[in-house]
Design a binder for these strands. Structure first.
Ligand SMILES: [Mn+2]
Ligand SMILES: [Mn+2]
Ligand SMILES: [Mn+2]
Ligand SMILES: [Mn+2]
Lengths: 222, 222
DNA sequence: AAAAATATTTAGGGTAGTCTAAATTTTATC
DNA sequence: GATAAAATTTAGACTACCCTAAATATTTTT
């Protein structure tokens, strides 16, 4: 069965929206917001995806991925994240540059290619943004890290990933001298405006806005 | 200007057909044979490509690439061949496996990507089939090697490339123990059936059919 | 529980790229 | 140079994917 570029993007979007939202079902409007297209176009595509048994679709009730759709979504995510690692590690792109190119590369069809790429890269477990890379069986390590805002205690944390993936946000983090693996020592949390006073790698001190604190994923350091 | 996957494939086909045929102009039928589609579909596309100033098209007269089309074709060829080198050198694919995947990868849009890939691979001058890789300015070294059949003298030759790129032909060469760079010593050319008696790398002796002899490109060894 | 607001689907239409069948132009043959 | 054959284009239609406008279903508000 041939699955188009566009269909793959819908499947990936449904996967991503489902994982982010509380409810299981993804609505037509959520999808059209995601793509900045019209709800009517989405309905059109949902019917096609349902015909191909990639989703479970009931009029007016939203959609879930079928087992087949789930498998496909994870495969695309695996490809996307492995290509991002390739671009960063081998071609020396920056972490804010890899996503757009990976959006194209994730649609290359070849199981052999992706498994060889995986080996070539040393079977990495995380992509440049800290997101876990599914293995070839489709298993993903769920991520334990949580947004820094959810922690209210002073102490040492390690930057494990980001929630927000935009170029702007990633460039901002780079600008303030923050990268994955850095040790973030929370020295103070202002009770009025929730500003975090932190020290990075025991070197430079700075302040995290709540925008930053809510979009970086950390684990507390043992 | 957005150029589709399909349009890129037409441009590449016209480039390839023009370089192979004696006449400059490429005919509608040549293109439809190449793609195994209908002449009417080709005409349709030629009109679109002419609208985009990628080709010079006159009804019933065939087409040539415009300067813009030429530049695009060479860029796609560059990408194709660099990805083939990547697949062979870095991911250990065989030379008969790389083409199909490169057919997909050649359509990834990113100048930065292709230039970094080029550097990563050490700026290779030839692809796994001996075809020259255009540089980032679009310059290509024309290939000096000629099909073995064009040589009628005994002596030592070096295998520089292949004319025929099919999986079957490449696998056949591998099977008879022939790869690029090998020294082919022509010991005899049968005057009746034109069979070439050759010794490979001064080791094993075998016979080349005219099918093989006409599809391998060699240079005489100094 | 009716009315209003929102979400979703249906209807009809557009472009890209393909097809078949018919019309037209070019080339080959006598 | 007329006629036949081959090449090419035109006409009309189909699918994928998108749109707008209208219809319908669901949810929220009163
Ligand atoms: Mn990404
Ligand atoms: Mn990522
Ligand atoms: Mn190739
Ligand atoms: Mn090649």
């Amino acid at each position: 069965m041939i699955i188009s570029f566009t269909e793959e993007n819908y499947i990936k979007a449904i996967y991503s929206l489902a994982s982010k939202s509380a409810t299981q079902d993804v609505s037509t409007n959520e999808i059209s917001n995601y793509f900045n297209n019209k709800a009517a176009s989405v309905t059109d595509m949902l019917i096609r995806l349902a015909d191909k048994k990639l989703i479970n679709y009931q009029k007016y009730k939203g959609v879930t991925l079928s087992a087949k759709g789930q498998k496909l979504a994870i495969k695309i995510v695996r490809k996307h994240r492995l290509w991002e690692v390739f671009l960063l590690e081998k071609l020396n792109f920056k972490w804010d540059e890899v996503h757009d190119i990976a959006e194209q590369l994730e649609h290359i069809h070849s199981d052999e290619l992706i498994d060889r790429l995986d080996k070539f890269l040393g079977e990495p477990k995380f992509d440049p943004h800290g997101d876990p890379i599914p293995n070839s069986n489709g298993q993903i390590n769920s991520i334990k890290a949580k947004p820094l805002v959810t922690f209210t205690k002073k102490g040492n944390y390690i930057l494990m990933g980001v929630c927000e993936h935009s170029k702007e946000f990633l460039q901002h983090l780079t600008l303030i001298g923050l990268k994955i693996g850095d040790v973030i020592k929370v020295e103070d949390i202002n009770s009025f405006d929730n500003l975090y006073k932190v020290k990075i790698n025991n070197k430079h001190t700075l302040f995290f806005s709540s925008k930053v604190a809510s979009n970086i994923l950390v684990e507390s350091k043992k």
